[in-house]
């Protein structure tokens, strides 16, 4: 691994992975506890429509993608608030339509196009410095926002009705959360691809939740796990010459299954300990 770091692309890949870990650890935790994984997946896929629009109309790439994803994200947010019981279906529709729109618009655009594979799996081995700066900015923004609203976000995520009674601006926070999610996803997709974004947003928080006593701890543990998976995955992909995004996901998946075993072991140990205490 050390000798790999003499290559700039490896250094950038490592940095990109670590920056993505911070964003995914924080946002992923909020996504998992608010049960909006499906909605996030919807945003991530529908964002492809934004790429299509940007190419078709010749707009700057980032403007088209971010604008389109934010619009889609806000539509999804409104739907989940208004018609909660059918929200997942409508998200599924937007998910498919966004993706199809992207594919068709790219078909209609002459010349060189983004191919679907690089959108799905990204290209962590060819991250330019400008993207690193962009990701670092997102990182700082997400961190500060969540730090500022931490207790309100916690109250909303745990019990929305009660939070509302206490005067926590739950609607605003919900839109803020989904907006942040959309922004983070679009930025990270550029670097690591759609599939890896979803993996990093869900697997580490899922594992971290079992072993954390607070939302804050869960964010920290998730970030650490994201970073470990990214570094280990990159190293494996370097050594065995494998696709880096997929390698990172496989390492994360291994961690996912191991967490079940560790949880079992802890359960067995604590139940043994408790059975030694005479029952009252």
């Amino acid at each position: 691994m050390i000798e790999a770091l003499q290559f700039e692309f490896m250094r950038n890949a490592l940095l990109a992975g670590l920056l993505a870990s911070i964003v995914c650890g924080i946002i992923g935790t909020l996504i998992v506890v608010n049960r909006i994984v499906f909605l996030s997946g919807g945003i991530a896929h529908a964002a492809y429509g934004g790429i299509g629009i940007a190419f078709f109309f010749g707009w700057p790439h980032m403007v088209g993608t971010i604008g389109f994803s934010l619009i889609i994200a806000m539509i999804m947010a409104v739907i989940t608030i208004k018609t909660r019981h059918r929200a997942d279906t409508i998200i599924g529709v937007l998910w498919a339509v966004g993706m199809a729109l992207g594919v068709i618009l790219l078909d209609l655009t002459p010349g060189y196009n983004v191919d679907l594979m690089s959108y799905l799996f990204g290209s962590i081995l060819s991250v330019p410095d400008s993207d690193l700066i962009l990701m670092a900015t997102i990182c700082v923004l997400v961190f500060l926002t969540v730090f500022y609203y931490y207790h309100d976000l916690l109250a909303m995520s745990y019990d929305e009705e009660f939070a509302q009674l206490r005067g926590v601006p739950v609607k605003f926070l919900y839109f803020l959360l989904i907006g942040m999610t959309a922004l983070s996803i679009v930025m990270i997709i550029r670097v690591v691809g759609l599939i890896l974004v979803i993996a990093l947003l869900t697997i580490p928080p899922f594992i971290a939740e079992k072993f954390s006593k607070s939302l804050f701890q869960m964010m920290g543990v998730s970030t650490a796990l994201c970073a470990i998976f990214s570094v280990a995955g990159l190293w494996l992909s370097y050594v065995f010459n494998l696709t880096s995004g997929a390698s990172i996901i496989m390492v994360a998946a291994a961690g996912f299954f191991m967490s079940f075993i560790i949880e079992r072991l802890i359960l067995i140990r604590t139940s043994k300990k408790e059975s030694h205490v005479p029952s009252v």
Binding site: A155, F162, R166, G167, E209, K213, L215, Q217
Partner: peptide
């Protein structure tokens, strides 16, 4: 991931 204390503290939030 929240302790009893954290839940009760939610009652101390004000607008």
């Amino acid at each position: 991931p929240v302790t009893a204390m954290d839940v009760v503290l939610m009652g101390r939030r004000t607008s």
